[in-house]
């Protein structure tokens, strides 16, 4: 026996060194894989929310925002995309550090994560799980509405000339009260040059998207008025939620 092997065996004996128990290693591996799977599922969910928010956009309103490229740029839910990217990075790192994960080239891992997220996100949306998630976050997270809901962020911008809400009362042939998605009451006026797209009869309860100019505290001059015709699936009831009526 060599001097080194004697020294090592003595140290093992004196310090009672033991191999890490097999069950501990199994638990560690299981925990690692659980983390990978949970992070992947959350990533799919985030991707599903991106898909959900984009699919409920009223793409016909693109001209109001300066055309399709501009509209796409504004409609993309960047916050959800950032969450998806962050979760995907975590999946990548955890997979890379798994027992055999290092053998796969980065492009295969990234491609695999993307494909699984696409499929998972689509499935989550198809099963109708995105809307309840959206509503729950809207109700419980104060910052969600103004940071994650790209649709709301586009339309709830009276200072930039965009207002969305539901007609409360017809004041006169050129004015109506509108309750916006934040439950604020606006007096919206319009002149003969205002464009209605499509031609609609103003009645209380009608959900509208209005483009124009803020003229004062809770005063808005409309230049274009649009019916919100994209019904959200499983639309929840709530002052913050715009549940447009189906167009006939």
């Amino acid at each position: 026996m060599s001097e080194l092997s004697s020294k090592i065996l003595n140290e093992i004996e004196e310090k009672k060194v033991q191999p890490t128990p097999h069950w501990q290693l199994v638990m560690r591996t299981a925990a690692d894989w659980l983390l990978i799977i949970v992070t992947l599922i959350l990533g799919c969910w985030a991707f599903g929310m991106v898909y959900f928010l984009l699919s409920r956009e009223d793409w016909g309103a693109a001209p109001l925002f300066g055309g399709e490229p501009q509209f796409v740029f504004m409609a993309v839910p960047y916050a959800w995309l950032a969450v998806f990217v962050l979760l995907s990075i975590l999946v990548y790192i955890n997979f890379r550090h798994s027992k055999r994960g290092y053998r796969y080239a980065a492009c295969w891992i990234v491609g695999g994560i993307f494909v699984l997220s696409l499929a998972g996100g689509w499935a989550i949306n198809e099963f109708g799980w995105s809307q309840p998630t959206h509503d729950m976050l809207n109700r419980n997270l104060g910052f969600y509405h103004h940071s994650f809901d790209s649709h709301a962020m586009m339309w709830e911008n009276p200072d930039r000339g965009f207002l969305a809400g539901r007609v409360v009362d017809i004041v006169d042939p050129s004015k109506f009260d509108l309750n916006d998605v934040d439950d604020r009451l606006w007096l919206v006026s319009f002149g003969p040059e205002a464009v209605f797209s499509p031609q609609i009869q103003l009645v209380p309860g009608l959900p509208l998207g209005v483009m124009g100019q803020r003229t004062g505290d809770h005063l808005f001059l409309a230049k274009k008025i649009r019916l919100w015709t994209q019904p959200a699936p499983n639309c929840a009831v709530g002052a913050r939620n715009m549940c447009p009526l189906r167009s006939n």
């Binding site: 080194l4 020294k7 140290e11 060194v17 890490t20 027992k99």
Partner: peptide
């Protein structure tokens, strides 16, 4: 070097159950 080798082999011993 001797120290390092000792550390290495102790680590190997502790990780024997983890050998794939």
């Amino acid at each position: 070097v001797e120290d390092l080798l000792q550390e290495i082999f102790i680590k190997v011993y502790k990780s024997l159950n983890d050998f794939d």
